[in-house]
Amino acid sequence: MIRTEGLVRQFGDVVALDHTNIEIKKDQVTVILGGSGSGKTTLLRMLSALDAPTHGSVWFGDEDLAQLSSKRLYELRGKMGMVFQYSALLNSLNVYDNVAFPLHEHSDLDESVIQTMVQMKLEQVGMRGFEQLMPSELSGGMAKRVAFARAMIADPDVVFFDEPTSGLDPISAGIVTTLIHDITKKTHMTSVVVTHDVHAALEIADHVILLWQGKVIAEGQADAIAQSEDPRVVQFIQGRPDGPIPFSRSKTPYHEDLLRVRL
């Protein structure tokens, strides 16, 4: 359903994505795993056309996102939802208006219909009854759930999640993870989850992609990844500081920096 070809994204000298090829399959939960700085957010921004690649392309169905008119892109966005890392609720609107926002903007539905739809989605994420709260009055986990409800209000084909569990307590994290899994399965939605949470990833993923320094270093079904003997995968999953993924992120050797005396 979504495919990238030789995707490269550079920020100055930093290569955030380095010839990344991935494929997102329909009706599956695809989890993109990687440490912080491995290019996960950058990749999501490419998949949703919030940002454009330096080289390479992103295909949504049979359309190249970079070639779309802005009108067509906005049409496609109607089929996408995004749950941002910090939820990104509109802070001038209450929970109800946040969730209803896409419908208020793009549909002529009666307010009573919209009300029912909002209630259904809020019920699905367990947030019914909180309609009147403002975003500033929500905890991180509640905001995530509201953002989730907003992302699926228009029944999108695909929903992107950026670190849905980061910053949440274990129970809230578990709730959000379960919600992603259950709702994807019940509603024939495709989910793309970006995270460094190995535990959650292996639990809900149909397909796992392991990203390191903008490159895909392993890919496969959750079990296969869990049992992989690739030392990089093992290191990541077990969270060990030593291994093929280096501890130091510096490019120059330590002694060179030490010996370079500044006068």
Binding site: L90, N91, P102, E105
Partner: peptide, 18 residues
């Protein structure tokens, strides 16, 4: 600026609102 920092501008963009 705060809408930019908190991703609200991106969120609008994702909801097809320019």
């Amino acid at each position: 600026g705060i809408m930019r920092v908190t991703g609200q501008l991106d969120a609008l963009e994702m909801m097809a609102v320019n």
